[in-house]
Design a protein around this nucleic acid. Structure first.
Lengths: 262, 262
DNA sequence: CGCGGTGTTGATACATTTCAAAATTTGTGG
DNA sequence: CCACAAATTTTGAAATGTATCAACACCGCG
């Protein structure tokens, strides 16, 4: 105990290791990070606009959503954060939040002080890069959300979201699969930029097509292939290709010359 | 010349310095970065899916857009990149693109090898942090795009985009202001997730309201206050608060205890 | 001078929203 | 374990914002 609850950060270390190469020292440093476990009640905004933060929140258990809102008060989620995510890793470099984060269910979080994270990042450039990469994966997902919300109709959009979450939960996408997603249809509306009513109708269609059943507690995918087809889903944006950290060869052309590319 | 075209990166150095504290050595290292100037033709996708990149593209002049597309072939922009932006800084940590980037106008870019950037980031943790922060600002803008596309009607959405670009161009937002934005209405449609026809009608309304006039070349804001009101625009997401790098004080409670927050 | 890309406008179609009410589930205290 | 209140899901009917289709005007450019 005494100031250290390190073991719990293990999933985060594994996550980083899945896309970046960490030295033994890096892992050690991470596992020694001081953390403070906090129970967060459902519906609570644990990151709020205008409130500078000095720690990152690792979600040990539960579900959270990053959101913005229009002046009309309508919420729009820009990300779901599931167990194993460091929900606001970006706050390490931007401590003044530009989006709020809300716990959708009662959650357990590990708060990691910025000072400690900054220290380990300063001590190891490899670790700093791993954190930056983790952050950038979030951003890549964000870019997909823009496409999803902007250019797909309700059915496709919902299907795409359900596919994304299936992959992120590591639900085996063989034929059928299932995962726990404790959200109301209003939450799904906030994520897909639809109304709750239309979410309901859209889920009904997907269910009647034999693709997927969504309850307030879990998602049952009956036809993974069919769902991904409907969803126009390509999971490659979710995985960073592990670093075959080959040194890039010297550029073919000398630097400094202006050239034209058509 | 001889392999170095460093002076041109000056705007990038200033940009980093505007939100992060760089040491003299950091600035030196940046200004010594090898670059290759490239002329990119309008409409050319200079970052494409499936083509791993080994350099970052700094936009010296011109306009570019990051985009994704649905299988139906419909494009959706997730960012505009203007002169002074490092369009794909994130590629340094994620060299396999998950979004394409297209030049909207004939542009001049400075290509900076990943190897060189990685070297300077490795040598200076402060510089690495500055790059990460720059990247995270892009992500914060991305999150706002989700809200904009998801929860605002056409008029508000377009107004918001025009406000964002005004601030990013540094156009003085006193009363009226103007900036160069060489885009077609189709480009605006790709950015706002509307159709080109509806963009046309929406711009007409904004013009008739005396708020702003948009031609294919430039944006003339007639009533900044009115436009920001209509747009539901708050510019704070565009600026990272400069680092008053105070050490965060030690946490009030001992680490390791589980507590509850309501 | 004509041609392709762009901007403009109108008429119509349609996906989604809005409003409203009932059915169902969930949570909670007795 | 029940009873009740609150939240959520479900369904219908009507309204609406935006898309679609189509035609024409404009402009820069070869």
């Amino acid at each position: 105990m005494a100031g250290i609850a390190s073991d719990n950060l293990q999933p985060f270390i594994s996550r980083l290791a899945s896309h970046s190469s960490l030295s033994g020292e890096d892992r050690q440093a991470l596992s020694r990070l001081p953390t403070r476990a906090v129970q967060v009640a459902a519906h609570r905004d644990f990151v709020r606009l205008g409130e500078r933060v000095d720690h990152c929140c690792f979600i040990l258990e539960g579900l959270a959503a990053r959101f913005g809102q229009s002046s009309a008060g309508e919420r729009q989620f820009s990300a779901f954060h599931i167990a194993g995510d460091m929900a606001d890793l970006h706050s390490l470099v931007l401590p003044n939040p530009t989006s709020g984060i809300q716990a959708l269910t009662t959650s357990t979080e590990l708060m990691v002080p910025h000072s400690a994270l900054r220290a380990v990042a300063k001590a190891s450039s490899g670790l700093a890069e791993a954190l930056w990469r983790e952050c950038s994966i979030d951003a890549a997902i964000l870019a997909q959300w823009v496409v999803n919300v902007g250019r797909r109709d309700a059915r496709t959009r919902m299907a795409h979201l359900l596919c994304e979450m299936a992959v992120r939960y590591g639900a085996p996408g063989d034929q059928s699969c299932a995962y726990v997603l404790p959200v109301t249809q209003m939450h799904l509306a906030d994520a897909t930029a639809l109304t709750a009513v239309h979410v309901n109708r859209t889920l009904k269609v997907l269910r009647e097509d034999g693709l997927v059943t969504v309850t307030g507690k879990a998602v049952q995918v009956h036809d993974w292939a069919g769902l991904t087809t409907v969803a126009d889903f390509d999971p490659s944006y979710l995985r960073a290709v592990p670093p075959s950290v080959l040194q890039s060869r010297a550029p073919a052309r000398p630097m400094g010359a202006l050239e034209r590319v058509h």
